[in-house]
């Protein structure tokens, strides 16, 4: 197989705090092919957004990559200079965020903010960039784009603002688009439209998409593969269809079961939702050599508390791996 577009291997990130060094990401590995859609899933603080920020070279000042590599088209981004990352960001790897209002500059028109990216990365002159901005607004299905190009962000609805963010992110036809909870602040009917837009444009431009979310439904709709993360580590990885059908890690299983997914069978009525007991561990425990899910896990044994499980293949599924001492086997 040819080398993947993006190959992250054993990525570690540490924060320097007043109390010393803490591990935030621990040995995270995954690959991404051109045009592929992958999802990072987990609860807040599991490291899914931090992985994305590490890819973008946008770790907070207290954080640094402590190990591993981020191989993007033959170049290691983990050691790339800030000047080089500035060339890559918004051009070859782009990102959209949860809250489109805070990501857009309120004092510039949306047309100018789209054009700026094209002038910076593609060296277009002002007029060409503006014309291209209108094309992009049309591509993200903003009605009457030629008139709306001179609007300011506050004149748009939340869904339209996220469309503008997508237009900015895709302006340079990047190879990777990272979407960090892009629809969390939006209504569900708007979310459906944004997902459809991302799928269509991703396919058209052959842009690989990394969707960061806590919503298994969104994963099922948007991604081909998923990476389940817990406490800074990858606990399960595989094809979305395989994992939803037969999650191998008890945490993945809990994440899928604890949500009241809508069902057309109205007679099906659960009195109680299956719970994952307890809460996520404190960040100070993230680097420990143990399964960090063990305190919340019904299958945990002594080994889970004392040794770190290595990712291992799941029988019967291609490219499905789980880091667990007592994984579930077979179907749900």
């Amino acid at each position: 197989m040819a080398t993947p577009l993006l190959e992250v291997r054993d990525l570690g990130v540490r924060f320097t705090t007043r109390d010393g060094q803490v591990t935030v990401l621990d040995d995270v590995s995954f690959t991404l092919e051109r045009g592929e859609r992958i999802s990072f899933v987990g609860e807040s603080g599991c490291g899914k957004s931090m992985t994305a920020l590490a890819l973008m070279g946008l770790l907070p000042a207290m954080g640094q990559v402590s190990g591993g590599s981020i191989n993007f088209k033959g170049e290691d981004l983990a050691t790339a200079s800030e000047a080089r990352m500035r060339q890559i960001r918004g051009n070859e790897i782009s990102m959209i965020f949860q809250e489109p209002m805070t990501s857009l500059n309120p004092v510039f028109t949306i047309g100018r903010q789209i054009a700026e990216v094209l002038q910076l990365h593609r060296g277009l002159d002002r007029r060409t960039a503006r014309a291209r901005a209108i094309d992009l607004l049309e591509a993200v299905r903003i009605p009457n784009a030629a008139a709306r190009v001179d609007d300011y962000p506050h004149q748009l609805s939340g869904g339209q603002r996220q469309r503008v963010m997508i237009a900015i992110a895709l302006a340079c036809e990047p190879e990777v688009l990272i979407a960090d909870e892009p629809t969390t602040a939006l209504d569900v009917t708007v979310q459906a439209e944004i997902f459809a837009l991302l799928r269509d444009l991703g396919a058209k431009l052959e842009t690989a998409i990394i969707l960061i979310t806590h919503d298994m439904g969104a994963v099922a709709q948007m991604a081909e593969r998923m990476l389940v993360m817990y406490a800074g580590r990858r606990v399960e990885e595989g094809r979305v269809a395989d994992i939803i059908k037969a999650p191998a890690h008890p945490y993945t299983r809990g994440l899928i079961a604890c949500v009241p997914h809508i069902s057309t069978d109205a007679t099906r009525r659960l009195e109680r939702l299956p719970e994952i007991d307890g809460i996520v561990p404190p960040i100070t425990s993230f680097g420990r050599d143990a399964c960090l899910f063990a305190p919340r896990c019904g299958r945990a044994s002594e080994v889970c508390h004392g040794e770190r499980p290595a990712p291992a293949g799941v029988a019967g599924h291609k490219a499905h791996s789980v880091a667990c001492w007592h994984p579930h086997e077979g179907g749900a």
């Binding site: 979310q191 459906a192 439904g217 709709q221 269809a241 899928i256 997914h261 109205a266 007679t267």
Partner: peptide, 24 residues
């Protein structure tokens, strides 16, 4: 039960259809 088995208003249906589901 009546609502989820057979939502009737076009808006209700749009809302229900928009919810991402793990059922393929």
């Amino acid at each position: 039960d009546s609502f989820f088995a057979a939502p009737r208003h076009p808006y209700s249906r749009a809302l229900l259809d928009a919810v991402p589901t793990i059922e393929a």
